[in-house]
């Protein structure tokens, strides 16, 4: 240290303090900005296709909308997950996006093409269809209300914070497994009639008012981790995502 009796004039000291504080705020702000950018979901939102038709359920009329998803054990094109470290091509995942936007007060028909094999649920409860119109789903043309726990491959379980500011929305749909894993791509509409041997699951539910919800899979597909809920299950955007009702 070179300064022995160095002192500053009061003015200089105040200026230094102000610069110091601004610098500190800037550093914290920069960290915040970095984290905020890193948190941004790199996936494109998947918007439901609105239909001009309406449908009447329990005496009320709703506009219709449809959305299609796929689940592949080993997809051929990667969803962009931003950082390369977390961009695992060989992890099972929903697609083409896990952030789904649905219109409010609408009869939403969701189609999920499934191409993964499975073993057993941690909790057989998730083998039941809950929260859909009529309490059923359609698997390859057949209406069912549940799937045995050892026949399930993944689930689509939609829930959210119970809060006064949005309507509750709870849907649980188990997906029937296939006998062997099929590689594929998030192009469900072109899959029909191709070599891929999957199932097609269709179900409908009615959205409430605007709100933010989350969904996740309840099938333990994080292989090799405690109760199968590590790895892909603990990482955002593979077997979990958001549903915005707008």
């Amino acid at each position: 240290m070179s300064g022995t009796n160095t002192t500053m004039t009061a003015g200089k000291r105040t200026a230094s303090a102000i610069v110091g504080v601004l610098l500190g705020v800037a550093v914290v702000g920069a960290v915040g900005f970095t984290l905020h950018s890193a948190s941004a979901d790199p996936q494109k939102k998947l918007y439901a296709t609105k239909d001009s038709a309406t449908i009447s359920v329990d005496g009320k009329s709703y506009p219709k909308a449809a959305v299609t998803l796929g689940v592949y054990p080993d997809r051929q094109t990667a969803i962009d997950h931003g950082s390369t470290a977390n961009n695992k091509k060989d992890w099972v995942q929903y697609g083409p996006s896990t952030h789904i936007v649905l219109p409010a007060h609408t009869y939403v028909t969701m189609t999920i093409h499934v191409y993964d094999s499975g073993e057993k649920l941690n909790n057989p409860y998730f083998g039941r269809v809950v929260g859909t119109v009529g309490g059923t789903m359609n698997v390859d043309g057949q209406d069912v209300t549940s799937i045995p726990a050892d026949q399930v491959q993944h689930t689509f379980t939609l829930h959210g914070l119970p809060t006064t500011s949005q309507d509750p929305l709870y849907v649980n749909v188990p997906l029937l497994r296939v006998s062997t894993n099929e590689k594929g791509d998030f192009l469900p509409t072109t899959d029909a009639g191709t070599k891929l041997q999957g199932h097609t699951v269709t179900f409908s539910f009615i959205t409430g008012g605007k709100g933010e919800y989350v969904w996740n899979c309840e099938y333990p597909c994080g292989d090799g981790t405690y109760q199968g809920f590590g790895a892909v299950m603990g990482s955002y955007g593979y077997m979990s995502g958001k549903v915005s009702v707008a």
């Binding site: 009796n5 002192t7 230094s16 110091g20 504080v21 500190g24």
Partner: peptide, 21 residues
């Protein structure tokens, strides 16, 4: 608290270098 702590950090750094003997 954040602002206060930044001020303290400045005070420590500044006084270490330029403080009254």
């Amino acid at each position: 608290i954040g602002i206060g702590m930044i001020v303290l950090l400045w005070a420590v750094v500044h006084s270490w270098r330029f403080g009254k003997i």
